[in-house]
Design a protein around this nucleic acid. Structure first.
Lengths: 225, 225
DNA sequence: CATACGATGAGCCGCATGGGTGATGTGCTG
DNA sequence: CAGCACATCACCCATGCGGCTCATCGTATG
């Protein structure tokens, strides 16, 4: 079973190079190419590739928007390829946007050819792969944003919340309903309600909306940055 | 300039295998070994390696705790190696703990030898590298925890909220009830409910708690005064 | 051993909240 | 002037949510 790939890049030379490189592999077929995001989406809808190699910067429609459309397809479109983003410069905005959109990988164009080939196989297999510099940033971001969720914040410390109550509060602040919190923590919904009742009482809050505010203001959760 | 590596694993056979594999590389020197985390930390402090290959599961002190000690050294210890975690099973708790501790990579022991070698070079260079399955999970986690609406302006601007609706959203994010919002804006409560209904529909939110989250994540309101 | 606290969960009750439909007035724009 | 977006408000309805009470169980803590 060969891996069907399409290449979306505005530079014809780049497309030709990648196509030659990949087509030389016995388990990879290049079944299409496109010079911009809009056409890339069309080609993908037509040829149903397993993997889409997508440049970030392109005219008409950039790679990020194209990736979003492929990964969050409209009603009726069932095909959902893996998207492997490519870029010349590793600008982090691109990376984060791409990963949010659901891309399976992010490589720099100056990566060794062998890396590109193995990357195609990896994402075709449902796994994911990032350029080392991107990995480093993602890890740094991950570690920074929750070095073991900060249970500090003056208001929070003096609040007298138990660990479990704090946990429930955090899920409230992530927008979950009582039922969802119960499922997430493997509890009866009634237990969740009890916890929430205590949280609201201890913090002097009226409802979950105010609880969300408290969670943000106390630093229990932080706006994504 | 060769890369100095130590190998920490409780299985002598694994140590021997990795050592042989790495020592065969002209740019890599294996300068030490240890059978558990405690000794691993000692050996690292003595031999100042560039990279520590660290098994997760070990007697005495597991790889996670050892990694923490190496990556967050006590006063007086200036040496801070890169840590590349190794595991047989990819249990995510381990992964997250290791990444929080500041590890530069996480590989499965069944990875191809070439991957291990290149991983050592990558982390020695200050970059990071994860096993594809780990990468996939990290990305999924990343995307899940901040999916759609975010980033001060764009999400808000593209949301299509009218000025009045935005005003109501802000008051929701201040913790006011519908009745209080109505009083604050000199409206009937029913009008407030209509506005809120439209806000929720336009933003794809379920309830006012999620609306509060959106307000914070979009920058409409910010923590701290 | 007695006590206290935390976690779990049940039952009941009332209201704020959210969804849907529809109507009116106003101001801007083609 | 016709059309449209926006703001305003009414009525109905189902229910998620929060308040209140009470009970069980395990683990510290004295």
């Amino acid at each position: 079973m060969t891996i069907k790939v399409i290449i979306v890049d505005d530079q014809a030379m780049v497309r030709a190079g990648f196509a030659a490189l990949l087509a030389a592999q016995s388990d990879i077929d290049v079944v299409g190419e496109a010079p911009d995001g809009r056409e890339g989406v069309e080609v993908s809808r037509r040829s149903h590739p397993d993997v889409v190699l997508m440049d970030v910067r392109m005219p008409e429609m950039d790679g990020l928007e194209a990736a979003r459309q492929l990964l969050d397809p409209p009603r009726g479109v069932t095909h959902r390829p893996k998207v492997l983003m490519l870029t010349t410069f590793d600008v982090d905005d691109y990376v984060y946007e791409a990963l949010r959109a659901g891309a399976s990988g992010f490589l720099l164009k100056d990566a060794p050819p062998a890396d590109l080939i193995s990357a195609v196989r990896v994402v075709a297999a449902g796994e994911a792969l990032l350029a080392p510099s991107v990995t480093r940033r993602l890890i740094a971001d991950f570690a920074r944003q929750r070095p073991a969720p900060r249970r500090d914040g003056p208001a929070l410390r003096r609040s007298g919340l138990t660990p479990r109550e704090t946990e429930v509060l955090e899920l409230i602040a992530r927008g979950l309903s009582n039922q969802e919190i119960a499922e997430s923590l493997v509890l009866a919904e009634q237990t969740v309600k009890t916890h929430i009742g205590r949280v609201l009482a201890k913090l002097g809050l009226r409802d979950r909306a105010q609880a969300v505010i408290f969670a943000y203001e106390s630093g229990l959760v932080t706006p994504g940055q």
